[in-house]
């Protein structure tokens, strides 16, 4: 047993050591030199907030997916498939397009995301079956796109801007956006960590939880609130990022980790994907365009993972 603990510590240290590596890749990805006052200013005002946004949104999605998969007992219960993420993005888009909140208000976007995410999550909370959950989730995303186009019928000029939310991107986030989201996400992750035992007791089943002394309804309410709040936080920062909330919990389970592992892996995954997106965008489009949206990289990776999972499904 002692040995297990020591291995856990070693592995944890290894993962933390990855953090500076990913951060360095992310900073170097745009291919801009790091010297010169202007370049350093750009790095500080754009590059660093972008990296932090990716880490923060990724951590939030990783933990949200971990929580959802545990309480819904479904390996496919990722934020993007349970209606929470599409709902949150729709909330943000509706608020921005209808002018309920100013376009760049961090608090307003967050509130809209929470409302939308809660509505979306409520619609999907009863799903249990793996294949159906995914399909409902994709229908939800299709619906999201449909409603978005309807909203945009009012203001066609905003289409490009809205696209950014639909794809999911951490580009263009500055310090101001992070100010609120930071406290929000850190707070809810802390709560998720404090409820680790609730999640563990809940995951084998309602009867199991009840026999061990946890009222399942109350436990699930806490967990779902945490998941929705975290997803909304991520959506208000980065829009509809797929895949992180699906694959990070799988990795966490393999590593026998918990909420903290999900936080770290989620942040690393999204920051890594964003670095990749910047590299690829630079390679594909030269310097003319601003680069591939992060969401495209994560969505493609997500599709590959789905195919992998489907192929492993027994006949």
């Amino acid at each position: 047993m002692k040995a297990t603990h020591r291995w856990g510590a070693v592995r944890g240290a290894a993962w933390i050591a990855l953090l500076p590596v990913v951060a360095a890749a992310h900073v170097l990805a745009p291919g801009r030199p790091l010297t010169g006052a202007l370049n350093q200013r750009i790095l500080w005002e754009l590059g660093v907030p972008r990296l932090l946004t990716a880490l923060l949104a990724g951590a939030a999605l990783g933990v949200a997916g971990y929580v959802l998969q545990a309480v819904l007992r479904n390996p496919m219960a990722a934020p993007e498939f349970t209606g929470v993420n599409p709902g949150a993005v729709l909330g943000v888009l509706a608020a921005l397009t209808l002018g309920v909140v100013p376009a760049d208000s961090a608090v307003g976007a967050l509130l809209a995301a929470v409302v939308g995410g809660a509505l979306g999550g409520a619609a999907f909370a009863s799903m249990r079956d793996t294949a159906n959950l995914v399909v409902y989730g994709l229908l939800g995303s299709a619906l999201l796109a449909g409603f978005t186009t309807m909203l945009l019928a009012y203001q066609p000029g905003r289409f490009g801007n809205a696209l950014r939310w639909l794809i999911g991107s951490v580009e263009g986030r500055v310090w101001e956006h992070l100010s609120v989201a930071w406290w929000w996400i850190a707070g809810w992750i802390a709560l998720a960590w404090l409820s680790s035992a609730v999640l563990a007791v809940l995951s084998p089943g309602d009867d199991h939880a009840a026999s061990l002394g946890l009222p399942p309804v109350a436990g699930r309410a806490v967990a779902l609130t945490v998941a929705i709040a975290l997803t909304a936080g991520a959506a208000s920062l980065a829009g509809a990022i797929a895949f992180v909330g699906l694959v990070v919990p799988h990795a966490v389970r393999r590593l026998r980790g918990g909420v903290l592992t999900a936080t770290l892996l989620g942040g690393l995954t999204l920051a890594g994907a964003d670095a990749l997106a910047q590299f690829a965008g630079r390679a594909l489009a030269g310097t003319q365009r601003l680069g591939l949206p992060t969401g495209v990289v994560t969505a493609l990776a997500g599709a590959a993972v789905l195919v992998y999972i489907a192929r492993k499904e027994p006949a």
Binding site: D207, H208, A210, S211, L212, G213, L214, P215
Partner: peptide, 19 residues
């Protein structure tokens, strides 16, 4: 409360769903 009951009684159900 649930916890008070669980301190007095343990239950072994027919099956445990796979985790």
């Amino acid at each position: 409360s649930r916890r008070q009951v669980a301190r007095r009684m343990a239950v072994l159900h027919q099956t445990l769903p796979p985790v």
